[in-house]
Write a protein that binds this DNA or RNA. Structure first.
Length: 486
DNA sequence: TTTTGAGTTGTTCGA
DNA sequence: GTCGAACAACTCAAA
């Protein structure tokens, strides 16, 4: 449960902490006079800082529903699926504890929601918006087929698309001017849930879910609150330490933000924004909004480079290279460590995401969309808008992206950010005994030294699949050619 | 309309 | 080991 301190802070910040005593003891509504509304949960599996839920509750009797989209469920890794189902069941339990339930029905939503509305005689539909093109197309259909008013909110962002614009009314294509506006835009409060009356659920529609509970994280908003609290104890170190993958300095809230077990405004409200670390962290939430706003305004960036100068890169897309990358067998320890952390846990430290992403795109000249797809499937925080924005950044094709000639040197990065090699040792156990001086580039080490640590290159750990200096030149040439041919 | 200044996260080379 | 410049010009936002 929430600590007393955190609860106090949240209340002080007028966020919608549910006051159950108030709801049940002081407000006794007249059931008959209240309209029924559907609250459609999507990537907002929480009851606090959730404007769709808050407004649905205020409006009348509420029927909470989740629609299982098989295509989405099937495209996620089994781990991501289990984490998601665990969150979903946690929400269901939370609603059960309040005397209600979460109806879980099979999609597609454009059939399921209108059917449910008709079945329940609902008068309105509430949900939180999503900027991904898939979501928007589906939501348009749902709205047009529903025959009742839809009330939608951008509850998963700090500011909605359109709220942070340049003086000419566009979304800034450069981050810093966006951020300057963003950070001075007042955050609109989400109203408080002051009453809650559940409508009668057509329980015969409820689907059964098989979950393999994952030991990786406590599910639901309770788990998310625990993670937020844990982060707050080390948040002062964020600015100094967040770049070092072996240090537990990042918030680890990205997956909760993706599934919506916590809301960004709630996180923002407990961060000390006067400190350097607090500012740096909140700035990351601005990036999150920015990428979402950009995708909302320019849905084509889901598959096309935001910068048309890079529309004609001659990708190699070599399959062997790609699979070596995916499996963490490139021969560059920091790259392999990152990919193995990802494959094992569904998470990768941000610094290492840049290194592995840059390696795939620039060293191997693999189309960024291939890496984007893989990350989105496997990452527990894999989110369309964020993944697109970050991969386009790494590839140099995005808005305000890394310049094409900025090519990460995996060895320099490794020396700089994992100097002792502890991150590598954790995820590439065959190198666990290798000395600090040899671990970043084992192919440069004395083979006898390596052998004494139990490593024979080519047998126990691969040689690098490509030479850095060669790959760097190849990348520069290829990108230059693409620019010239535009 | 024109001008000005700024721009997430790097690398390499030479002094 | 440390420092600054070059990389390659460019685009964008704001004045």
């Amino acid at each position: 449960m929430l600590s007393i301190t955190l609860k106090r802070i949240l209340r002080a910040n007028f966020l919608p902490i549910f006051d159950f005593d108030y709801a049940f003891n002081t407000y006794l509504p007249n059931l008959c006079s209240m309209d029924v509304g559907i609250c459609w949960f999507r990537k907002d599996l929480r009851l606090t800082d959730n404007p769709a839920w808050t407004n649905a509750c205020l409006a009348g009797q509420v029927i909470p529903v989740f629609v299982l989209e098989q295509s989405l469920v099937n495209s996620a890794s089994s781990l991501k699926r289990d984490v998601f189902f665990s969150h979903l069941l946690a929400l269901k339990t939370e609603l059960n504890d309040l005397g209600g339930d979460l109806l879980i029905i099979n999609g597609p939503a454009e059939k399921a929601i209108p059917k449910l509305i008709a079945r329940c005689g609902a008068k309105s539909l509430y949900f939180n918006d999503d900027s991904s093109p898939f979501s928007r197309a589906r939501d348009r259909k749902v709205k047009s087929l529903s025959n009742v008013p839809s009330h939608t909110y951008w509850g998963n962002l700090i500011h909605p698309p359109g709220a942070v614009l340049t003086s000419s009314g566009t979304v800034s294509k450069v981050f810093t001017p966006f951020y300057k506006k963003w950070v001075t835009t007042p955050i609109s409060p989400v109203g408080q849930v002051s009453k809650l009356v559940f409508g009668t659920l057509p329980s015969d529609l409820n689907e059964k879910i098989n979950v393999h509970p994952t030991p990786l994280m406590t599910p639901g908003s309770e788990g998310a609150q625990n993670r937020l609290e844990a982060f707050l104890t080390r948040a002062d170190e964020y600015d100094n330490s967040r770049d070092y993958p072996f240090i537990d300095a990042t918030s680890r809230l990205s997956s909760d933000l993706h599934f919506g077990t916590i809301g960004p405004r709630e996180i923002c409200s407990v961060i000390n924004e006067t400190s350097d670390s607090g500012k740096a962290f909140v700035r990351q939430l601005a990036w999150r909004d920015w990428y979402s706003h950009l995708l909302f305004k320019s849905p084509e960036i889901i598959s096309l480079p935001a910068n048309p100068a890079y529309g004609k890169i001659n990708w190699r897309n070599n399959k062997d290279d790609y699979f070596a990358w995916e499996e963490g067998k490139t021969g560059y320890p920091i790259v392999d460590a990152g990919m193995r952390e990802l494959n094992k846990t569904g998470f990768m430290h941000n610094r290492v995401r840049m290194i592995t992403g840059s390696f795939l795109v620039k060293h191997l000249l693999t189309d960024w969309r291939i890496g984007e797809k893989y990350f989105r499937q496997i990452l527990l925080d894999g989110d369309v808008s964020q993944n697109i924005g970050n991969w386009q950044w790494v590839a140099g094709t995005g808005f305000d992206a890394a310049p094409y000639f900025r090519i990460f040197n995996p060895v320099r990065q490794s020396e700089k950010f994992d100097n002792n090699g502890n991150y590598i040792r954790k995820w590439v156990p065959e190198l666990a005994d290798v000395d600090k001086k040899d671990i970043h580039a084992p192919w440069l080490a004395d083979s006898h030294d390596l052998a004494s640590k139990g490593v024979k290159l080519g047998t126990d750990y691969p040689y690098p699949i490509v030479d850095h200096a060669y790959a760097r030149e190849r990348c520069l040439t290829t990108y230059k050619l693409a620019r010239e041919n535009t």
